[in-house]
Amino acid sequence: MANLQVSLLTQKRIISFTRSITNYYRLLENDFLETNWEALLMHDTVEENWEVFKSHLLELSRQNSVSRTFTRSAKKPWRNHQILQMVRRKKILWKTYKRTGNEMCYAAHRTFSNLLASNVKDSKVAYEVRLVNSKNPKCFYKYIRDTLGGSVRTPQIQNSVGTLITENEDIAKVFADSSANQYTIEPLDSPPDIATPQCGVSLSNVDFIEDEIRVKLQKLKRCNNNF
């Protein structure tokens, strides 16, 4: 018997973007100074020399830069201007600690980080309360759709012995076995007995007398005329 358990996990919408960050300014400066500009800028026109200079400078910058991928939530309407300023302040405090290594700078960063987390929580709660109390229900339901409108992924499936299944064909087989186990397979050669209803009294004969039928019909006609 296949032991199947499926769990659906909602994910918030995440926006990923990549930025090129130049961290090695000294190396860039050395490469810039070591460039033989006289041999490089030997074209007749200023426009051509400018294109060569710009291309070479961009190439040096690319060689001394690193690419980093950042992620952020697609939409956080409760992040007002004050919250954004506090986020920038938190980053500045962290960079100060990384540069100096001072424990006081780290303590200041942790204190401010806790304050920011508390303000973000209060701001989110206040925003949701405003949506609930709003006279326009569309804003509330839009917020619900945006919150739960992320992609839904299915975790990996395990079979009865606890082994993870990754192949689509094996996953389909586990689903099929789990569905088949919900039904009972009956033998085709010996179908089960069907219990027929038992009647204590049966009618052996029904007699129709013409006079009695006429009387009944006359009563029906009189009832219809009264209505």
Rank of each mutant, 00 (worst) to 15 (best):
D170R: 10
E210M: 03
E29V: 03
L148S: 04
F175T: 02
R26I: 06
N3V: 12
Y143T: 02
N133M: 07
I21S: 01
R99F: 09
L4P: 02
D177A: 13
K91P: 00
L60H: 10
P137I: 08
S190T: 14
Y24H: 12
N64C: 07
A74S: 10
S204L: 12
S20W: 01
S123G: 04
Q156N: 08
F227A: 09
Q218S: 09
Q198R: 15
Y106M: 13
A172F: 03
T35E: 10
G162L: 03
L203G: 01
T100D: 12
T96P: 00
E169V: 12
K95C: 02
E47W: 06
T22P: 03
Y24C: 09
N226R: 11
V52R: 10
I213H: 02
L58C: 11
P137L: 08
L33R: 15
A126D: 13
R88K: 15
S67I: 03
L27K: 07
L60V: 04
L116R: 08
I144H: 08
V129A: 09
N119L: 12
L148K: 03
M86C: 01
R130K: 14
L58G: 01
T71Q: 15
Y143S: 15
N133V: 03
I213K: 06
D207R: 15
K98T: 08
K12M: 06
N133W: 00
Q63C: 09
T96D: 14
I21D: 10
R19G: 01
I213G: 00
L116H: 10
K124A: 07
S61D: 02
W78F: 13
T10W: 05
C223M: 09
K142G: 09
I194C: 03
F70M: 06
S179G: 01
S134Y: 01
K219W: 00
T111H: 08
P187R: 11
A74P: 00
G149Y: 04
K135R: 12
H109K: 13
K216Y: 03
R72I: 07
